[in-house]
Design a binder for these strands. Structure first.
Lengths: 265, 265
DNA sequence: CGTGCAATTGATCCATTTCAAGGGCCGTGG
DNA sequence: CCACGGCCCTTGAAATGGATCAATTGCACG
């Protein structure tokens, strides 16, 4: 999966891709690429992006900076991820995107995208689903407000692992994890010190093995349970399983939250 | 603004609407409406929504429930807001939507939306911008992870006030605030007790006046400064002001976060 | 072999949670 | 008309998860 077809792999999670679409995607990402070094900004807040970018390889992240200097990482961009499709509506970025590792990018011009959409309408649908998936991830990150340190970090690791698996970047129960503990801290709203101690706690009970930028999850199911992770929000299943009927107006919401204590034991 | 043109008011924040578009929107929201009582669910997690919904009046909220019963409010839906435009790609809801007050809804069928888009292409753009705005709000909520209680609550109040003002639902520096302190707590990842004490603190220094479900912000600028709120992420300015040029690759990110203490004094 | 960054550790502090209870208000029913 | 229950807001005291401050270690690299 070191090839240029990472975007194909990514979009295949959303729709069935035919030969024609696959080629169209490959061509799209080959036209104009660019390399950015590690720990640099790709786009700053206030910029007006002319392109839609595709991460071909490497890790990046979105972040916002508060006036007093605090920074919050609001999402990670993995190979196969695009940003920002809403750049089609040329507007100022309200956040920045920076790299963690060296990153290879494809720049898709808006005209070429429109053209590809016209020739392959399913591509437009795939892009829309990609956007919807990104939105779902963002919502899930909001839920971190209700989580403690173990849950936040465990949830993040589950999410990253599964997203990497979706583009074939895992090896068994292992994957690269090029982010530092300080990155995790800035993403989860914790201090690096506390992230460190929390990781040690999780290691000590065997939930994770994390060393030299490689993450191993011995028992993904166990980790998911321990931190109440459910992958459904990632919508990586081609979205074909409708369950309940909608429009059941008037049902009452479930009871309020009950007290809780982390279940790492 | 009690009329049916609330969606017109909302979308006018994103694009210039001509006579034709205004009428098209009005018709769209008049075709099929529905009333839902207070504190009820409109859509549950797992449902497959057939419509795009427009809040014509009243307040609703999106929420997710964890397996152990904890609940996190991930966003508020105010008059003029739509949910979920991505329902066009019929998929399971990964979260629920419930009402706070009684809510009047318009249900837009997917065919009618497509039809309206064909007749008025600018409408499609307006909808896309609405989606992009919702996404931006979701990102901003992620930043709450980096904020303390005063900042979270103050930020929320600023956001709600300005969003209401954008659809003419404020009166001077006042607006209705039908949510309870427990709602604020579930939205901001705090306990109701702490929300209570924090509100008292903010009242005591004159940042807000909040009583009987009415919020008054004596000095919006002062509140914004106190909690580091910037409204740019709401993209309510027709997005016409491009500033900097993009593509300045290779610039270094700003320095790491500096220590911080709330500035409510 | 210093220099710098990431991970780690210890000690202390504090913002927020937890637990428990009381007060005000309002609609309803006896 | 008043008692009652329910919801929301409020208050107090004690407990704690995570922050803060300050070093120290380990390691890659020029």
């Amino acid at each position: 999966m070191s090839g240029d077809d990472i975007l194909t792999a990514r979009l295949a999670n959303f729709i069935e891709l035919g030969q024609a679409e696959t080629e169209a995607i490959s061509n799209l990402t080959r036209e104009r690429t660019r390399q950015v070094g590690a720990r640099l900004d790709i786009i700053r807040e206030g910029d007006v992006a002319q392109y839609v970018y595709v991460v071909l390889s490497g890790w990046a992240y979105r972040y916002k900076t508060l006036e007093d200097g605090r920074r919050q990482i609001i999402g990670f961009l993995l190979p196969g991820d695009m940003f920002d499709i809403s750049n089609r509506l040329v507007r100022e970025m309200d956040h920045a995107v920076g790299t963690i590792t060296p990153v290879r990018l494809a720049e898709l011009s808006l005209e070429r995208i429109e053209q590809a959409f016209r020739q392959h309408p399913k591509l437009a649908e795939a892009f829309d689903r990609h956007t919807a998936s990104a939105m779902a991830v963002q919502r899930e990150w909001t839920v971190h407000l209700a989580r403690n340190a173990v849950e936040r970090i465990g949830h993040l690791l589950c999410e990253l692992f599964i997203r990497l698996r979706a583009v074939n970047l895992t090896h068994g129960n292992r994957c690269d994890l090029p982010i530092t503990q300080a990155d995790i801290a800035e993403a989860m709203g914790l201090t690096a010190v506390h992230v460190n101690r929390t990781l040690q706690e999780m290691r000590s009970v065997g939930l994770i093995i994390l060393k030299d930028r490689v993450l191993e999850i011995p028992d993904l199911g166990r980790l998911q349970q321990a931190v109440l992770f459910t992958s459904s929000y990632l919508h990586l299943d081609l979205g074909r399983d409708a369950r309940r009927a909608p429009g059941t107006y008037g049902s009452s919401p479930p009871d309020r939250a009950t007290p809780f204590r982390s279940r790492i034991d």
